[in-house]
Simulated assay, not measured.
Amino acid sequence: MHFFRTFALPLVAVAMLPFDSRAAASLMVDDASTTDAGRCQLESWGRHTDAGGEWTAVPACTLAGTEWSLGITHQQAASSTQWALGAKRVLRDIDQRRWGLALSAGVGSDRQHLRSDDWGINAPVTIALGATDRALLHLNVGWAQADGARGRTDGIGMEIATAPGWSLLAETARDAARQRSSQFGMRRELWPGASVDLLAGRVHHQRDGHWITLGVNFAAAP
């Protein structure tokens, strides 16, 4: 029943949409790409932490050269729901060169407040390593305000294709409160436009800061 509550809403939302050829990952470190122009995607994941479970759904569509997203996260332990609006634009396309650059910005808050308390800007860079592009390096640097803290954010992540349909994922990131978190896992492509992520992570220097994440990602035509 817990699994059904976690994934029912995202699965129903995408079941009525035709699938396309792109799906993104639900990770801490962003990449320098967006959904294809005129296309939509849905990232969804359930996370079990030491404090309890939470689930997130982030639908996004690319219009006028910019990817627009709306994220909803529900934390069961705190019985709270947060929202986040985001915009992301690619400045240099990695599909045409060896590295790509994007710029993103977002605002968010608790569902009981229309005024956004949290905000952030981020510049993701993706670098293709090697001639076969089987390994991608993702670098992030930005600035954010969240939960009363304000400061620089950064992150570094690796995505390595190990076999057809399988990839290894590893990343570490620092938030506005200067708290660093890391996670490691794998991704399985189910079919073009759909994938599943399984990740284990932890907040550094925090005894009860461990989690396990199961993500389901779809790409769909609008």
Score class of each variant (00 low, 15 high):
Arg152His: 08
Ser69Arg: 03
Asn217Gly: 06
Ala57Cys: 07
Leu42Pro: 09
Ser195Val: 01
Val12Gln: 11
Phe3Glu: 00
Gly201Cys: 05
Gly155Leu: 04
Met1Lys: 13
Leu9Phe: 09
Pro59His: 05
His138Lys: 05
Gly53Met: 08
Ser21His: 15
Glu43Ser: 08
Pro222Asn: 04
Arg97Ser: 15
Leu168Asp: 07
Asp197Gly: 10
Leu199His: 06
Glu171Cys: 01
Leu27Gln: 02
Thr73Glu: 10
Trp45Gly: 14
Ile121Gln: 05
Trp191Cys: 00
His205Ser: 12
Ala219Pro: 15
Leu101Thr: 03
Arg89Gly: 13
His2Lys: 09
Arg207Ile: 02
Val203Thr: 09
Arg174Gly: 15
His113Asn: 10
Trp119Asn: 00
Gly120Asp: 03
Thr6His: 08
Gln145His: 14
Gln112Lys: 12
Met158Asn: 02
Gly38Lys: 06
Ala170Ile: 01
Ser21Thr: 15
Met186Thr: 09
Arg180Pro: 06
Gly193Ala: 01
Ala51Cys: 07
Ser21Arg: 15
Lys88Asn: 08
Gln96Gly: 09
Trp55Glu: 09
Thr34Asp: 02
Ser109Phe: 13
Arg5Thr: 08
Arg39Cys: 01
Asp30Met: 11
Leu169Ser: 03
Gly65Thr: 02
Thr126Asp: 07
Ala84His: 14
Gly130Ser: 12
Arg98Trp: 01
Ala221Lys: 15
Pro59Leu: 02
Ala131Thr: 12
Val58Cys: 04
Asn217Ser: 11
Val107Arg: 04
Ala144Tyr: 05
Ala149Gln: 15
Asp133Glu: 09
His2Trp: 07
Asp36Val: 08
Arg92Asn: 13
Ser33Ala: 07
Ala32Gly: 03
Gly148Arg: 11
Arg22Asp: 11
Arg150Gly: 11
Leu168Met: 13
Phe184Tyr: 05
Trp83Ser: 00
Ala15Ile: 02
Ser21Met: 10
Leu190Gln: 04
Thr172Leu: 05
Met186Gly: 11
Gly46Cys: 04
Arg134Tyr: 01
Gly148Asn: 09
Asp110Gly: 04
His204Asp: 14
Ala173Met: 02
Ala84Tyr: 12
Gly46Ala: 05
Gly157His: 07
Val90His: 06
Asp197Cys: 09
Ala8Gly: 05
Gly151Ser: 10
His113Gln: 12
Gly215Tyr: 10
Trp119His: 03
Pro10Lys: 14
Trp99Glu: 09
Met186Phe: 14
His204Ser: 13
Leu190Thr: 08
Thr66Cys: 04
Ser69Phe: 01
Gly120Gln: 04
Phe184His: 00
Leu42His: 08
Arg178Met: 06
Ser44Gln: 07
Gln41Val: 02
Trp143Arg: 06
Arg207Gln: 09
Leu91Pro: 14
Asp95Gly: 15
Arg207Ala: 10
Ala23Ile: 03
Gln82Glu: 12
Thr35Cys: 02
Val107Asn: 03
Ala15Cys: 05
Gly86Lys: 00
Val14Ile: 12
Ala8Val: 14
Leu139Thr: 07
Met158Ser: 02
Arg134Gln: 05
Ala37Arg: 10
Leu169His: 04
Cys61Gln: 11
Arg111Asp: 12
Ala102Glu: 03
Leu27Pro: 03
Arg98Cys: 00
His74Tyr: 13
Gly100Leu: 06
Gly120Val: 01
Gln82Phe: 06
Leu42Phe: 10
Asp20Ser: 15
Ala177Met: 03
Phe184Glu: 00
Gly201Met: 05
Val14Ala: 05
